[in-house]
Design a protein around this nucleic acid. Sequence first.
DNA 1: ACACTAACCTGCAAGC
DNA 2: TGCTTGCAGGTTAGTG
Length: 268
Amino acid sequence: MPELPEVETTLRGIRPFLLGETIDDLIIRQPSLRYPVTSGIEQSVRGHAIKEVSRRAKYLQLHLDNGSMLVHLGMSGSLRIIEPNVDWKKHDHIQLKLVSGKALRYHDPRRFGSWLWSDEAHWQLNNLGPEPLSKEFDGDYLYSLSKGRKIAVKAFVMTNSVVVGVGNIYASEALFSTGIRPDRAAGRISRNRYNFLAENIKVTLKNAINLGGTTLRDYSNSAGDPGYFKQELFVYGRSGLPCKTCSNALAESRIGQRSSVFCPKCQV
DNA sequence: ACACTAACCTGCAAGC
DNA sequence: TGCTTGCAGGTTAGTG
């Protein structure tokens, strides 16, 4: 899925079309997603205006006056702004039709995403760590949380209660630019190195956002275009290829069910 | 509290 | 050309 940069790119693309618009209808062709689409959701949203559209972690939230819709793109989801009458492609599951005449179409081959309605706070947003691009996320924060932890540092920064939005691509890339081996125990990294790591996570995410995110296969932005960060990747998806810094072959291992590519020479 | 696994689902690439 | 296997931007539930 989309990690934070892809979700942020999606947010920036759809927000201008949705803000202040009234919902004409919600069409659900496939309610069987990661969680079943909240039943009766159509009646909840029909005729209501979208007051705000925001992002928290990898969730998008459409705020109405009577509640909010929490949308997650899972591993393979994407949202597009289209004309409501365009043909439904395979794996197009949901369409939010606006009175303005435009529509938001949800496409998700693996169906790991979610569309949840609640008239109060969504429990999915509980226990989330800070946003990586916020001021409160820094090296001191990471260092203090990491004390005594034996978990691999890559899995540590991918843990949502530690910091949100950092998935397999950007964790791998930020660890490479910091020169830290992804399998190093989180509790055995110095405060100084965490300062660099936190900074590099921010820089990596910002660069990716500026390039519209990373497109591997499924992801496209709200206009249907891919992101261009893939060409900037140093390690992710490059197992066995030469390191762009030292030209040594990149190595791969598995950390917490995720493939982890790193340079054995540049990362210690 | 922490560390780790299996599971949700479809498509695609690699290997035989 | 098939068929089988394993892996893919995430997250949670369940185990020890």
